[in-house]
Amino acid sequence: MAQILKFPYLTPLPSRVLLGSWVVINDTETKTLENFLSDWDPAVSLTAAIPVTIDVQGVLDDCGLAADARMRLVTAWKSSGTFLRGCGEAVDLVSSTPYHEMFIKVNVQGIKLAESLELSLQLLLLHPGSNTGNPFAPYLPGSVLAKSPPHRVLLEGYGARFPVEVIDFTNTRFPTDAGWCLYWEPSDLYQSVMANVRLYINSRHERVKRAVSEDRPEDFDIRDAIRYDVARTLIHGALAVDEFVDHPESYEPGTIGRAVKNMIRMYFQQIDFRELRSNSKSEDFDAILQEKLHLFWQEA
């Protein structure tokens, strides 16, 4: 979905809403919420909180709202794996308390999450109150006045690794003696990487299986060959999709489109995606990719 860059109504100055860092709260301690939860378990709920200071009167002034307008500060969450989203604690704000300082919480059931969790804080308009005559003041209930940047947390270490599975190729459509095969659907790049992309390793191929599971220095060439093959397959596949080439920014974190876009940007910093698609059809492109990946240059 396209992201809105500027709201079509007045919004407050960034200095009106000051945020601290997200913390995770459990029975015994409160600690900084990192971008990775190694001990995450779907059976357990996650409670997080963020400190916030808000200048209520300043927000009302900036937005052209009357003193009797009502606003709501709310925590929001969404998960890339289940595609579910929801809200946590909500605090309604009134101008009789011009400054608010608080810790606002969100409690998310683990069973509603998979792959990653994204937390944010939103300041919303609940009711516009008396008419101030300002034609640019927000008026719809739920209008987002301010929103924090999302804090993304990878669950179970997802995202830090590429989804890899070791299986016997005898039972698949893959050639029985192949070493590996990338399973994905290039036509829908909005799908989640963790749910829809798999690098299958043939369990019957001892050398390849060992190379990916034991990390021995002498097997680096096999790992490099796999890395190159995966990058090449994903880049060629995505560049064949018109929507990807025309709107590479439209894919959310966790999707195949975003992962390939980031990968392309790592190797080809400046180039326009349309130009890259055209270049990718040249005979030299795969050799250029070898160079970008520094293929086989590491000594065993």
């Binding site: 979905m1 396209a2 709310v74 929001a76 929801g86 809200c87 939103q122 919303l124 209930p141 739920g142």
Partner: peptide
């Protein structure tokens, strides 16, 4: 609704308000 979703956070509203919108 998808257009409104870029400026309105429906999730944080009461069910009756969402239904009204």
């Amino acid at each position: 609704v998808r257009r409104l979703l870029s400026i309105i956070s429906f999730d944080a509203l009461e069910p009756a308000t969402i239904l009204g919108l």
